[in-house]
Simulated scan of single mutants.
Amino acid sequence: MKKIILVFVAAISLSCNSNAQQDKSNKKEFEVTKSESEWKAELSKAEFQILRKKGTERAFSSELNRISQPGTFVCAACGNALYKTKHKFESGTGWPSFDRPISEENVAYQPDRTGGFPATEVICSKCGGHLGHVFNDGPKNTTGKRHCINGVAMDFIPDNE
Rank of each mutant, 00 (worst) to 15 (best):
M1T: 12
M1D: 04
I5K: 08
V7Q: 09
V9N: 11
V9G: 12
A10Y: 04
A11L: 14
I12L: 15
S13D: 15
S18F: 13
A20H: 12
A20E: 12
Q21W: 15
D23W: 08
D23I: 14
D23K: 12
S25H: 13
S25V: 15
N26L: 14
E29H: 14
F30E: 07
E31F: 08
V32M: 06
V32A: 01
T33M: 15
T33S: 15
T33Q: 15
E36W: 07
W39M: 02
W39A: 05
K40D: 06
A41G: 11
L43S: 03
S44Y: 11
A46V: 10
A46Q: 13
E47C: 07
F48G: 01
Q49V: 09
Q49G: 14
I50D: 00
L51F: 13
K53S: 08
K53A: 06
T56S: 06
E57T: 00
R58P: 12
R58V: 11
F60C: 04
S61V: 07
S61E: 03
L64K: 02
N65G: 14
S68W: 05
G71H: 04
G71M: 07
G71A: 08
G71P: 09
G71S: 07
T72N: 08
V74M: 00
V74T: 01
C75S: 03
C78E: 10
C78Q: 11
A81Y: 05
L82C: 09
L82A: 01
K84W: 02
T85V: 14
T85A: 13
T85C: 13
T85G: 12
H87D: 15
G92D: 13
W95E: 01
S97W: 04
S97D: 01
D99Q: 08
D99W: 06
R100I: 10
P101C: 09
P101K: 01
P101A: 09
S103E: 09
E104S: 05
V107C: 08
A108P: 05
Y109T: 05
Q110D: 11
Q110L: 14
D112Y: 03
R113K: 15
P118K: 12
P118G: 11
A119N: 09
A119M: 07
T120K: 05
V122L: 03
I123R: 05
I123F: 06
I123P: 00
S125Y: 01
K126I: 02
K126M: 06
C127G: 04
C127E: 02
G128L: 07
H130E: 08
H130P: 00
L131C: 03
G132I: 00
G138K: 00
P139G: 01
N141T: 08
T143P: 06
T143H: 05
G144R: 10
H147G: 03
G151C: 06
V152R: 02
V152A: 01
V152M: 02
D155E: 09
D155L: 04
I157M: 06
I157K: 14
P158E: 13
P158F: 10
P158T: 09
N160H: 10
